[in-house]
Amino acid sequence: MTRIYIGTGGYSNDEWLGKLYPAGTKSGEYLSIYAQHFDCVELNSSFYAIPGLKAFEGMVRKTNGRVRFTVKLNQAFTHARTPADADFDRMLQSPQPLREAGVMGPYLAQFPYSFPRTPEHRKYLLGLAERFAGHELAVEFRHISWDKPEVREGLSEYGLIWVSPDYPPVGGLPEPQVHVTGDTAYLRLHGRNAGNWWEGTSASERHDHLYTQAEMDEWADKIALREGELDTLYVLFQNTTKGHALRNIPMLRAALNARGLNVATPEPEQSGLFGDA
């Protein structure tokens, strides 16, 4: 049976005070509390600055082996696209504590809409795949030009994971389907705030969407259809604004369990932390 990990994009969110984190919780305590409720997290801070070994050691210590980490590539790899050898070394070596603890998930390469499918960009992606060979690398494309069967066949050939996204219905973006290019699949749920996707001034505004039960049922159906094709599935909610993801995750868990997929809910070491998110 497919092992399904469900979590959020990042965990350091002050908006969650009084929801997931009790009022007055210090930011240094966020991850320890997060680990009591979710078994996966997408590390977003690495996009801005690659953490060092000690930072990753601290993550392992605070989660006590309860959380699987996916690690977003630094913007030098996906946006500037001018990574130096030192960037590769740090990106590949720093998460070693996660590997040693058995909680390392895929790296995530999130390319912007300004990265369409061109010969130059295809060549760059191939070079990136070669440098990350031997490590799981999930790739998210925002531009619809990549959303083709032959692209997914190429990813499968090079051992790359196609990131299945849920975007607002605004056009120009990949379709919301679960595609499989290997034993591991990766789903990123961005919300469906069509009005703010292009016009929003921040990621918080773009991801300001609370999924309905019908929308969660829709994704549960799509996931259930892939049961048996996968060893592992990561589902990462990006709609963390206003605590939306905190409400949607239990909805998806219940929908998946209702379809016969065994999705575990971590047992909190303390009670009363989740509140009325």
Rank of each mutant, 00 (worst) to 15 (best):
E136S: 10
L137Q: 01
L137E: 02
L137A: 01
R142I: 04
R142E: 07
H143M: 03
I144C: 07
I144F: 09
S145R: 01
D147I: 03
K148L: 14
P149Q: 00
V151Q: 01
L155W: 01
L160N: 04
W162K: 01
V163W: 00
V163I: 02
S164Q: 00
S164N: 00
S164M: 01
D166R: 03
Y167E: 12
Y167N: 15
P168W: 09
P168E: 13
V170R: 05
P174N: 09
P176Y: 01
H179S: 13
H179I: 02
V180S: 11
V180L: 07
T181K: 01
A185D: 01
R188G: 07
H190C: 05
G195P: 04
N196V: 05
W197Q: 14
W197G: 12
W197N: 14
W198K: 13
W198A: 11
E199I: 15
S202Y: 08
E205T: 05
L210Y: 11
Y211N: 08
Y211R: 08
A214L: 15
A214I: 14
D217Q: 12
D217M: 06
D217C: 06
E218G: 11
W219V: 01
K222C: 13
K222A: 13
I223N: 10
A224Q: 09
L225M: 11
R226L: 06
E227T: 11
T232S: 05
Y234S: 10
V235E: 15
F237H: 15
T240A: 08
T240N: 14
